[in-house]
């Protein structure tokens, strides 16, 4: 359906969620992971919306964790990558790789 093509930020969020794993991935940790690894800023609002969209596409699922006092008694929503999400990451990677394949990594020419 429509979710064949992943946006770049969507891919980053998906990858971050996969790296962190089901028990640790949530909006704040995902944003931090992206910032630390890519060096670019990831606004939390963007992460929320992207997660919302990915969940709607069935690529990730989420559940509420335990509530914590430092969060005003509120729980975190923990994110897990679904099989469809894994497939989408695969597809994206093979698309990138096949496009990169044969390009000179310095001059970016074949």
């Amino acid at each position: 359906m429509g979710h064949r093509g992943l946006g770049e930020f969507e891919l980053l969020v998906l990858l971050a969620a996969a790296r962190l794993g089901p028990g640790e991935a949530h909006a704040v940790s995902i944003a931090r992971e992206i910032e630390e690894r890519t060096g670019r800023s990831a606004r939390r609002s963007a992460v929320y919306i992207t997660l919302q969209r990915l969940e709607q596409k069935g690529l990730v699922s989420s559940r509420l964790g335990d509530s914590r006092p430092e969060r005003g008694g509120k729980a975190r929503r923990l994110v897990a990558v679904e099989p469809d999400g894994t497939r989408a990451m695969h597809d994206a990677r093979s698309a990138y790789v096949s496009m990169w394949d044969g390009l000179d990594p310095v001059s970016w020419r074949p």
Binding site: V28, R44, R68, R76
Partner: peptide, 19 residues
């Protein structure tokens, strides 16, 4: 403004960051 299922998460993050 935040959809119901995500309110708690967003508000919790906000509280945490604010603290």
């Amino acid at each position: 403004v935040v959809p119901g299922e995500r309110v708690e998460d967003v508000l919790g993050d906000l509280e945490e960051a604010h603290a």
